[in-house]
Simulated assay, not measured.
Amino acid sequence: MKDFSFKIPQNIEFGIGSLNKLPNILKNNGSQHVFLISDRGLEKIGVVNKVTEIIKNGGINCTTYLDVIPNPTITVVNEAAALYKECGATTIIALGGGSPLDVSKAVGILSKFGGKITDYEGLNKVPGAIVPIIAIPTTAGTGSEVTASSVITDEDKNYKFSIVSYETLPKYAILDPELIMTAPASIAAACGVDALIHAIEAYLSKQSSPFSDAMAEKAMELIGKNLRNFIKDRANEEAACGMMAGSNFAGISFAWARLGNVHAMSHPV
């Protein structure tokens, strides 16, 4: 067996209604003012308001940036970072799918270390711990709440670049299956297949280890058993829990084993 290493540096809360633990997590982290990064779609369906109400009812100030777009750009990152610095927050809450989480990691980097976000492109260019992030995923797909990657689009060069550093891992993740139970069937399907492919690619990776294999195997079991039921009925609590946990385990597996050709080809496509 070859040498391998891993660490579990995060605090993860899982369960129906676990979103309500957010104020206590913030207080335990010493956060009196938070910066919530999300998108207009989640604002429109009331998810942003639900989260901000929980924060404010806990006696904590909250500033929001809601202009995240799919395949987020350098412009979006710069806008959000400027507002973060201006508002005086000390913690970032990343609410949504992969895009808000990617932007949150990039904002956390710029707010701590400055410069241009392209300065951090590549592997292990982030010099230390970034601004604390609490990740609240609203899809069972990306696994970004437990991965070390942030993918940003450079509009001028018309390409996506990746920042890969374990310093960008969110400090906390709240996995509340209720947040994915209103997703459209098409979104549930696309995100679920994405999570399944994460697990498969990590399992087949040349960089896999017994640790990443264990996470990938459990992810494939959970997603394989629950994906069809979840697409059929997003209100199926058991299926939603299985998909949320499976997506998370798949994310952990590829955070340490990396991905393969499917995701490599997706970037130029």
Rank of each mutant, 00 (worst) to 15 (best):
G15E: 03
A188E: 02
K112S: 01
N229K: 02
M220F: 09
A264L: 13
W256G: 01
K7Q: 11
A245S: 12
L26Y: 03
P100H: 13
E217N: 10
S209W: 03
T118F: 06
A199R: 03
N124A: 14
I252P: 01
G141S: 11
S209V: 03
G96L: 10
I133T: 02
I25W: 11
S104Q: 08
L179P: 04
L101Q: 15
G128V: 14
T90P: 10
F6R: 10
L169Y: 07
P170N: 06
T153M: 08
A257D: 08
G224N: 14
L66K: 15
T138R: 04
D102K: 14
G115T: 14
V48P: 03
A255P: 09
E86Y: 11
A239Y: 04
A94W: 03
R258N: 07
G141D: 15
R228V: 06
K218W: 11
C191H: 08
I69P: 09
Y84D: 06
E201C: 03
C62F: 00
A264N: 13
A185V: 01
N229A: 03
P137H: 08
K206I: 07
I69A: 09
D233V: 04
K7M: 09
E221S: 06
F230K: 05
N78G: 07
E155P: 15
G59I: 11
A173N: 00
I12N: 02
N124E: 13
A257E: 06
V193S: 01
E178P: 09
Y172C: 08
T118D: 06
F113Y: 01
Y84H: 10
I180F: 05
L196C: 08
L26S: 10
E221C: 05
V51R: 00
F14Y: 03
K112H: 02
V193Q: 01
A185M: 02
